[in-house]
Design a protein around this nucleic acid. Structure first.
Length: 231
DNA sequence: CGCCAGGCCGTGT
DNA sequence: ACACGGCATGGC
């Protein structure tokens, strides 16, 4: 079987085990974008605290958030760490929204995804993964988010060389849904797949000796079975 | 107390 | 091209 087909099988396995994930957990597209930036190198529980700070002050809304001085913003997002960089990144993101899309995320979602991606990548603090997370989870575009967990799973299962770069892994993952012609359905698969990979990654990262048997264990090649879990 | 988290970037080789 | 350290904080 080709790597995309095997990857599709892994996706089905995870979907059967964990069920629908329905990511991204948030009440609005703006909150999703903010969360995507705040979660970089940070546990989600810490991000939630920052989002709560913003919510309590009614700042999960474009116009209100736009008015907040960066210094104050820093304090509000302190719980999720890297506050100086992240506050600046959020400001730049709001500026992009205002200057290019009249502060409307709906309008941003109508623009060509490639152009939006380039604009996001131009912001300091937003790289490939965060840009794609925003495209997928906030704007509904059919793109896979490649994170460290997906990378580990793909390499571990021998579906890509250990050296594979972001774009290569992304193409491979999306090729798993090549049969899907409907854009919305494709976006839904990307959405679920990434969320599922994060779930299995968190539960079976292989660093804890007492970690439960990985649901994907049966999909590993025979000669890989005995090795310690790598994700 | 030590390691890690739903990354990214600047620097040195 | 690739490795490495800094960025900050909270959970376990």
């Amino acid at each position: 079987m080709t790597p995309p087909v095997r990857l599709r099988a892994l996706y089905e396995t995870l979907a059967a085990v964990y069920g629908p994930q329905r990511w991204w957990p948030s009440d609005s597209a703006l909150e999703t974008m903010i969360g995507a930036c705040l979660t970089q190198g940070t546990a989600w529980t810490s991000v939630e605290r920052s989002l709560t700070n913003l919510r309590e002050r009614g700042l999960l809304e474009f116009n209100a958030l736009q008015k907040v001085p960066e210094e104050e913003l820093r304090e509000l997002i302190r719980p999720s760490g890297f506050m100086q960089r992240k506050a600046a990144t959020l400001r730049a993101l709001l500026d992009l929204l205002e200057q290019e899309y009249e502060g409307s995320i709906d309008q941003m979602a109508q623009a060509p995804p490639a152009a939006v991606r380039a604009q996001l990548l131009a912001i300091r603090g937003i790289g490939d993964e965060t840009a794609d997370a925003i495209l997928l989870y906030a704007l509904g575009q059919p793109v896979m988010v490649v994170d460290e967990y997906l990378r580990r799973v793909v390499i571990r299962h021998g579906l890509a060389p250990a050296r594979a770069r972001y774009a290569e892994l992304q193409q491979l993952a999306m090729a798993a849904f090549a049969e899907e012609r409907n854009s919305a359905a494709m976006a839904n698969h990307c959405n679920e797949f990434h969320a599922l990979v994060v779930q299995v990654g968190k539960a079976h990262c292989g660093r804890r000796p007492d970690c439960a048997p990985c649901p994907l264990r049966g999909d590993l090649d025979q000669h890989q079975q005995g090795q310690p879990a790598a994700y």
